[in-house]
């Protein structure tokens, strides 16, 4: 049975940059992009891979959706080159500075406009803010079930079997579709490298840009004014290190003193 999937992806500043190059704008409390490249948040790439594998196995359609600025079209092209059939960008200045509930509201309305779907996939946590909040808020908006931290999905007879990663193992959850699933990485969902021909084909596809008004978004629920969560400060943790020499005439004495000091510091 074909599976129609919507994958929500987020473009973020490459999180692999060295901490020394991480800068925060004191006014907006957001990371400064500078010369750093933009990438698809890592777990969102796993979500695309899961979606494309399901489509390859069962048929159906994969639609990638992203809320972001014009640059997010590059992330969507990347999703297309990995095998998504269509991609939609939701870009509207009114959405900027929305909190997690605002973004979830926008994404939920966008998925409703896409139409019929069996699965909505997201990454389990974004590589920038790491709130893990949007998937659950979004499922709530849509009135569908939500299962988080899933590494594998099997589809059969109008339902899905989800392998949810938990401490020390995994749970198998049967869920009726439609359902929203957030994806965690696994050896079976390592994002594929797009082939040259697929990159070229993706380049030729048009990505529709939807505005908040196209989606029937409640304008009272988006933007900075509607945000229920307010970020008051963002700072880089300061790492302090100091060196303490343990004296002693013999190695044995040094070891005893070291053990005593570590215990004093409650490190052992």
């Amino acid at each position: 049975m074909p599976v129609n999937i919507i994958v929500c992806i987020k473009q973020i500043i490459d999180p692999e940059i060295p901490a020394s190059q991480f800068k925060i704008d004191p006014g907006t409390k957001r990371q400064v992009q500078g010369s750093h490249s933009l990438v698809i948040s890592a777990y969102d790439q796993n979500a695309i891979e899961v979606a494309v594998q399901l489509k390859e196995k069962h048929g159906g359609k994969v639609t990638a959706v992203s809320v972001g600025g014009a640059s997010a079209a590059t992330a969507l092209k990347s999703a297309l080159s990995m095998g998504a059939d269509e991609a939609i960008l939701v870009d509207d200045p009114a959405i900027v500075a929305s909190d997690q509930q605002g973004i979830a509201h926008v994404l939920a309305t966008a998925t409703q406009k896409v139409g019929v779907f069996d699965l909505i996939l997201t990454g389990c946590v974004s590589g920038d803010w790491g709130d893990r909040a949007v998937p659950a808020f979004m499922a709530e908006e849509l009135g569908i079930g939500c299962v988080g931290f899933v590494s594998r999905i099997e589809a059969k007879d109008g339902q899905v079997v989800l392998r949810r990663v938990v401490e020390d193992g995994y749970e198998l959850i049967e869920a009726k579709t439609p359902v929203l699933v957030s994806i965690i990485s696994d050896e079976t969902n390592t994002p594929r490298y797009p082939k040259l021909k697929d990159i070229m084909a993706a380049g030729k596809k048009t990505i529709p840009v939807w505005k908040a008004a196209d989606l029937g978004v409640d304008s009272e629920r988006i933007g900075a004014a509607a945000a229920r969560a307010l970020i008051t400060d963002v700072y880089l943790p300061v790492k302090e290190s100091k060196c303490e020499m343990i004296e002693g005439d013999t190695p044995q004495e040094q070891a005893v003193k070291l053990a005593a000091r570590l215990r004093e510091l409650k490190l052992i």
Partner: peptide, 16 residues
């Protein structure tokens, strides 16, 4: 570079 050329560059860089 075109968007496609950048995407190809990124793909091969990541692969390498």
């Amino acid at each position: 570079l075109s968007e496609e050329q950048k995407a190809i560059q990124t793909m091969v860089r990541e692969f390498a």
